[in-house]
Design a protein around this nucleic acid. Structure first.
Length: 586
RNA sequence: GCACCCGUAGUUCAGAGGAUAGAACACAGCGUUGCGGACGCUGAAGUCGGGGGUUCGAGUCCCUCCGGGUGCACCA
């Protein structure tokens, strides 16, 4: 596909040169909105119309005529089959191109050759990208909003890695501050030193919630105690530090299972507590540069009004660093260590202003890499019942959601095949496909109304639908009794096979997979892959419903088996990029 | 008040400045002595929040108004 684009662009350039004696560089090639027009299209005729004082339709006709005479084929291919079967000018001004059957069939060799790496790219080779995601507070369990963050971060990492980047998946634990002391304080007062009698992060979370309830009753008193505890912690008082280690340790221990269920992992964990003394040098530098100033209370403030941003406190009046101080230091350290091409912060959109301030500060400080920072701002997750509120106690924790999904999937799987060897493992994978796909199919910018009942369905645009489609495809391969290794594809074998409409449609769509992946990497939008997969899955199921495979005549049967296998491979690769592992049977 | 995000079918969502705005769910029908009917096919359903503008061409870009959400100094 990528090759076809390059060749086409070159040929269009040449045709313009030949006909109009014009060097024209802005040649854009797009995918027609309606596929009946073709596989590729160009709008150069519109752009040339003004320069040439001719109508777009006329120019399109001339160019199409010229292009047809070129018999475009791949240079490296000795067989000289044409890439396009049809080049057509439309009176409005478009020139449409349709892939030849040869090109489409040839795609199958690509898939077989590349296998699990089909669709991957090399645009990121030799470059490091840091993706920071999850970043929870170790004082309570992860909630459904964290899940979206985890899915986005891990999926984007997967996609970037598939594009050749060296990806560093980073978790940055917000493990220092008064928010941690909330759980600690309640445990100290009411915990009686006992060990968790449930999943440890939930155990810790109970004390966090207890604080919020107690705080309603007696705010002044509790605020004071909390401040005192944090002060002791800052001063390194042993008893408090031990308590801090205990509480955060339980949170981490509990999360392990959550992360594992969600198929989320990290390469590096950074801890805010390692940065409590951080950033002082940079702050001094900022003051010297006139970016920030110390006010009468001793706090350091960056004046950002002239950049259309709110002012930002960089250092408390007591001289201790706050979140942004540590964030500045972390990014600087990261750059020195990794020399990153990009650093992506996966954080919900409420923090947009914060990141604008942060990035502006880096720019003002003169760090040349300030434009390599990117805030992936994603929207809220709510349930059909309404928004979550920790005050109202309607926060939905991730473990409960996963458990509920697992339960629903087991109900859906009532028709499952008997010979499933590991029903529990399969159930978990199906459940995760529902959970991850349900979130990832939505544009990150959009808020999500997460309806557990609809994402777990086996019908519609869901993960399980695609899992089922894959399993059905692989079931054909199994029934054929043919080893996967003996599947092969070359043009001599398939030259005389006449394809049916459903097969052509499937192949034409398959060709766009790698483009979808690279677009998804460029825009950090996994939902493009999800929507590709659904569209592709529907085409496969149309094919499945209309075109017999195992009962077909021998040579046709072999072609269709290859097509089925390659389709399954594409679904598998796409789902993998969403962090979903396929199952052969379900 | 200022700033940012969102507004597309009854509902949940896709639409990479291009051609007649697409799916799914729900709704009304249909289909296998064929490979997993957990599927497929057909139908009905839209003033793309309103109004201006830029462009050969706007759901998409700009302005403005309306509606919803979020953020605005020593929390993270």
């Amino acid at each position: 596909m990528e090759n076809a684009l390059l060749i086409l662009r070159e040929n269009i350039r040449e045709s313009i040169k030949n006909i109009y004696n014009l060097d024209f560089e802005e040649i854009s090639i797009e995918r027609p909105e309606n596929e009946k027009y073709g596989d590729l299209a160009t709008n150069v005729a519109f752009l040339l119309a003004k320069k040439l004082f001719k109508s777009p339709g006329e120019i399109a006709m001339d160019l199409a005529h010229e292009l047809k005479s070129y018999n475009i084929s791949f240079e490296c291919d000795p067989s000289n089959y044409p890439v396009f079967s049809d080049i057509e000018a439309v009176s409005t001004g478009f020139i449409n191109f349709r892939f030849s059957d040869y090109f489409l069939k040839n795609q199958l060799s690509e898939v077989l050759k590349k296998g699990d790496s089909y669709g991957s790219g090399k645009s990121g080779e030799g470059k490091v990208i840091i993706v920071e995601y999850s970043a929870p507070n170790p004082n309570k369990p992860l909630h459904i909003g964290h899940s979206r963050n985890n899915f986005l971060g891990s999926s984007i990492s997967e996609v970037l890695s598939f594009s050749g980047y060296n990806v560093v998946r980073m978790n940055y634990m917000n493990d220092w501050g008064t928010h941690i002391c909330k759980s600690m304080l309640m445990y100290k007062k009411y915990g009686n030193g006992q060990n968790p009698d449930k999943k440890p992060d939930h155990f810790v979370g109970d004390f966090y919630r207890m604080y919020e309830i107690e705080h309603e009753k007696n705010p002044e008193e509790l605020d004071k105690e909390l401040a005192q505890m944090f002060k002791d912690m800052e001063n390194g008082k042993k008893e408090i530090i031990d308590l801090w280690k205990k509480i955060t340790g339980w949170a981490y221990e509990g999360w392990e299972e959550t992360y594992e269920n969600e198929n989320v992992f990290f390469d590096v964990c950074e801890y805010q507590s390692n940065y409590t003394k951080a950033g002082k040098d940079i702050i001094d530098f900022a003051i010297k540069k006139g970016i920030a100033e110390r006010d009468s209370t001793g706090a350091v403030i960056a004046r950002l009004g002239k950049y259309g941003l709110p002012d930002k406190v960089l250092l408390r009046s007591d001289g201790t660093p706050i979140y942004i101080t540590q964030d500045i230091q972390l990014a600087k350290d990261n750059f020195e260590k990794y020399n990153f091409e990009k650093r992506i912060y996966v954080v919900d959109k409420r923090q947009s202003d914060y990141f604008k301030q942060l990035f502006k500060l880096f720019e003002l400080l003169g760090f040349k890499w300030s434009d390599r920072l990117y805030h992936l701002a994603y929207g809220w997750v709510s349930l059909p019942e309404g928004a979550m509120s920790s005050r109202a106690g309607t926060v939905v924790n991730a473990d409960d959601v996963f458990k509920k999904i697992l339960e629903l999937e087991k109900g859906e799987m009532k028709n499952s095949l008997k010979e499933v060897s590991d029903p529990d493992g399969t159930g978990k994978k199906i459940a995760l496909s529902a959970y991850r796909y349900g979130m990832l199919k939505i544009d990150p910018k959009q808020d999500i109304v997460f309806d557990i009942n609809s994402v777990t369905k086996f019908e519609g645009n869901t993960g399980p639908y695609l899992m089922y489609t894959y399993a059905r495809a692989m079931s054909i391969i199994e029934k054929a009794g043919i080893g996967v290794s003996s599947l092969e594809s070359n043009i001599e074998l398939f030259e005389n096979i006449e394809m049916r409409e459903e097969e052509i449609s499937l192949l034409r769509f398959m060709c766009t997979f790698s483009r979808t992946v690279s677009l998804s990497a460029d825009t950090m939008s996994p939902h493009l892959i999800a929507n590709f997969l659904y569209d592709f899955g529907q085409r496969f199921n149309s094919f499945y419903g209309e075109v017999p495979v195992l009962n077909a005549e021998e040579s046709v049967k072999f072609f269709r088996l290859v097509l089925v296998y390659c389709s399954a491979q594409v679904i598998k690769n796409g789902l993998k990029l969403l962090g979903i592992d396929v199952v052969e049977k379900m």
